[in-house]
Simulated scan of single mutants.
Amino acid sequence: MDLDSVRTFVAAAEAGRFQEAAAELAVTQQAVSKRIAALERSLGVRLFTRTPRGVELTIDGQAFLPHARELLRVAERAVTSVRTGHRPLRVDVIASRGAATGLMRAFHRAHPDIDLDVVMLLEIETAVAALRSGTIDASFRAVAAPGRPLAEDIESVRVLDEPLQLLTGPAHALAGARSVPLARLARHRIWMPGIVPGSEWAAYYDDLTAEFGLTIEATGPNFGSDALLDTIADTPALATFMGGHTRLVWPTGHGLRRIPVTDPTPVYPHCLLWHRDNPHPALTTLRTHLTTTTTAPDTAGTWAPSWAIPRP
C-alpha cells in the first residue's frame, strides 16, 4: 500500500477539503485527488463523498481511518529505528560472559539514557563486514593479528588489557598456589577447546605458546563453558586459561581455583573497532568512556603479542 496515498487520505479526512490537504502536504489539489482515487481503486471502495463544503468520509472511509493512522505511526517507528541518533547503539561483544560484556554493562550504568543493542558475532570477518554495512556500530576484538591487517576504513583503540588466570580443579598440582610463574606452566597440560583456527584469539595463544614453550591442546568438540568447567573440575591433569574479567559460575562441589599468572602476566589486548564514517552520536561517548575508565597495567610485568595495538 502506497504510504503517500494513505498520508493524503488522513490529511483530507482531518481537513474535510482536498484543497486544505494539498496545502498541508505541499502538493497540488490535483495530486491529492489522484492519490485518493488510486487508494480507492486499491481498496475497492469509496472513501469520500463530495459535499458543497468539501468532502466527507463514507462508512468505509470511517472504518479505514484509524487503521490508516496506525499505518503511518508504524511507518514512522520503522524509520526512527534506523535513523542515526534515534536507533540504539549496536555493539558486538563476542560472548555473553566475556570482558567486553562487562565493559558494556559498566557503560550502560554510566549512561542509562543511551539505548543499546548487544550482539554476539564470532568471526572477525563477520564483525568487520557488519561495521562496514552499518549493521553494528562497534565491536570488541584483539587486533591486528598477523595476516589480519585492518582495512583503512576501520579504526580501533585498545581499551582493556585483561590478565589471564589459570583455572584448575581441586586436585590439580597447582591448585594450592597463590600465583604461578608463566614459565612453570610449560610442564602442565592446558586444554582450551574453544580456540577457533584462524581467529584472533588463536593467533594470541599461538604466540604465547611459542614464546614461553607452553602446550595448549584445542582437541575435542567445544560444548561450551559449562562442559569445560565440568571437565577441569574432574580431571587433575588438566588446566585452562581464563580471562581475569570473564564471569564464571560453577557448582559449589567443583572446587575450581582461579590462580593469577605472573612473571610476566599475559594480558589479552581488547580493542574497540568502528567504521571511520559511522555517524552515531553515542559512538563517541562509548569511545570516551572506555578510554578514560580503563587503565593499562604495568607493562613491565605483563606480556602481549608484538602485533597488539599499543595502548593510547
Rank of each mutant, 00 (worst) to 15 (best):
D4W: 03
F18T: 09
D92G: 08
R276L: 13
Q165R: 13
H67E: 06
G44W: 10
P88I: 10
A11I: 08
T252A: 14
F140N: 05
V10F: 06
V45W: 01
P52C: 02
S33L: 02
L286C: 07
A173W: 04
E125I: 00
R189F: 02
L164W: 03
A300T: 14
T252C: 00
L72R: 02
A218F: 01
S5E: 12
E123G: 06
G253M: 04
E40I: 01
C271M: 01
D115K: 05
E20A: 14
P88A: 12
G102M: 09
G134D: 01
L208V: 08
G220F: 09
L39C: 03
D263H: 13
N278I: 06
T135V: 11
T295I: 10
L166P: 11
H280R: 03
A304W: 02
A63T: 13
V118F: 14
E162D: 15
P193M: 05
L71K: 07
P146E: 01
I94F: 08
V6Y: 01
T294D: 05
T252P: 05
I136W: 06
F241H: 11
T288E: 12
C271F: 06
F18W: 11
L121N: 07
G61W: 00
P297C: 10
G220C: 06
R17L: 02
T292L: 13
A22F: 01
S306G: 12
A38R: 13
R77M: 14
A68T: 06
T8M: 08
H67M: 00
G253S: 08
D298Y: 00
E152H: 12
V143H: 04
H270M: 09
G98W: 05
A78M: 14
T8W: 01
A304L: 14
S139A: 15
V157G: 04
P251L: 08
P281N: 06
A26F: 14
E40L: 00
G54I: 07
G194E: 11
G194K: 03
L131C: 00
I114G: 01
G224S: 10
E211Y: 07
H245C: 07
H188N: 05
F9P: 02
Q29E: 15
Q165V: 14
S133R: 13
L39V: 10
A233N: 11
